[in-house]
């Protein structure tokens, strides 16, 4: 059963001579529980595709369905709720809220939604990611690997069906990168989540069930 369906997705940035075609008719489906890696050169449109799937950016043409919801038809406020409940993001630059503690960062999407966390589930996630000791710390006191583990915990906290990871190991050294990618895969499998990960790293990409290559805004062979 497909949880993500991308149809004829097109997106251009800029205008005139400076126009860049980031996505050029992308077609993609991702099944529920699948782990898909997206690879490609810089500027091939990987991040743009991921942003479209997460409702962070709007396509010029085409449609994105996530868990049966057509993102093009959503208003701004509905998109916000969609992002809270349907997807969990893991960014290369972590995107933690610097003024909140680790615990508050993890619970942030739930807080925005006004919903209570499942205590047992959260404790399990925190323990799985090895964050028990750092729950009251602020992000600026953490290492890169720790920050990314907080970002993964945050992505899992609201139990979204889809996790989107944009080069989650890009800012980490190779050892930390391996650890984080391993954790991400393990967490997705453990909680039966669909994982779409953009990466440059061929080794990490091989962890996925399927690898998708992008080239000049199109899905390659």
């Amino acid at each position: 059963m497909d949880i993500i369906t991308v149809r004829n997705l097109k997106k251009c940035y800029g205008s005139g001579e400076r126009q860049v075609r980031a996505l050029d008719g992308v077609e993609l489906t991702v099944s529920k529980g699948e782990f898909v890696s997206v690879m490609g050169a810089s500027g091939s449109g990987k991040t743009t595709l991921l942003n479209m799937m997460g409702g962070l950016d709007m396509p010029d043409e085409g449609e994105v369905y996530v868990d049966g919801v057509n993102l093009s038809g959503l208003r701004e406020s509905e998109l916000a709720v969609f992002r809270r409940r349907k997807v969990g993001f893991v960014f290369q630059e972590y995107n933690l809220v610097p003024t909140l503690t680790v615990e508050e960062n993890i619970l942030f999407p739930l807080d925005l939604d006004g919903s209570a966390p499942e205590q047992g589930f959260l404790e399990e996630v925190v323990s799985l990611l090895g964050l028990e000791e750092r729950m009251q710390s602020y992000p600026h006191t953490l290492s890169g690997g720790q920050k990314q583990r907080v970002a993964i915990a945050r992505a899992l906290a609201a139990k979204p069906p889809v996790i989107l990871a944009d080069e989650p190991t890009g800012s980490l050294d190779s050892r930390s990168g391996q650890n984080v990618a391993g954790l991400l895969k393990m967490a997705a499998e453990h909680y039966h989540r669909t994982l779409v990960m953009v990466t440059h790293n061929r080794e990490l990409a091989q962890l996925a069930d399927r690898v998708v290559y992008m080239e000049n805004g199109k899905i390659g062979k």
Binding site: E76, S77, A80, F82, R85, N95
Partner: peptide, 15 residues
């Protein structure tokens, strides 16, 4: 950038 970040995590326009 901060607002972009919290929007990406699901903060609504009303919030």
């Amino acid at each position: 950038r901060f607002y972009g970040r919290i929007k990406s995590l699901g903060m609504s326009p009303r919030q």
